[in-house]
Amino acid sequence: MVANMNLNELERKAFRSTFQDGLWDIFIGILFTQFAIAPLLSARGFGDFWSSAALFPIYMMALAGVIVLKKYAVAPRLGMVRFNKTRKSKFKKLILMTNIILVIGIIAGVLFVDLSHLNIKWLFPATFSLILLIGFSAMAYWLDLTRFYLYGAMNGLAVVVGEALYQWAGASHHGFPVAFGVTSSMMIIIGIVLLVKFLRKHPKPTEELNINGAGNHGR
């Protein structure tokens, strides 16, 4: 037992358990519906800005839902844990990396609008694909969540597949509604499956859980 025990793996297992409820998968999936729905709204005359802005309240509601469910459905079943400095430092690195990727994405977006007259067909999809792949891989690496590599590959591929559908099969809006409709649905479904499994595996304790007497010594 002692020889086989890897303390780092034990810490990773404890950390991963806080993500086994699938709520963040559902939330990220809902966020990614933006790429599927916004182009359709834009085509109906909402304009690029308002078609994205119109979805903002939905994302805020989804975020509120995640926070409420974490507090009232997950925490009473999973318990509470505070992680050590190493984990907190990993989080800081992830936040820094996410911000860098976001800035690069915005710069790339602005550049591509400027360069749209150059007819560089695959440059935008390739860059966007790479940004998604790096972003999800960073999350997978620093959060120790293997399934986020899958999300990175899935969404990175979605951009390329969407562009191929647009160029060769005449799909509308660079194929985004189809490609991201599929990937965001998959992330939401995976999240729901994880949530149902979590709720089944961890019924809400009906009695007070603490130490019989141990917590009362000398208190």
Partner: peptide, 14 residues
């Protein structure tokens, strides 16, 4: 050893 602190329920689950 690997976390800062945890409650009874979390330890029971783990």
């Amino acid at each position: 050893y690997v976390v800062d602190s945890a409650d009874f329920l979390f330890l029971m689950n783990q």
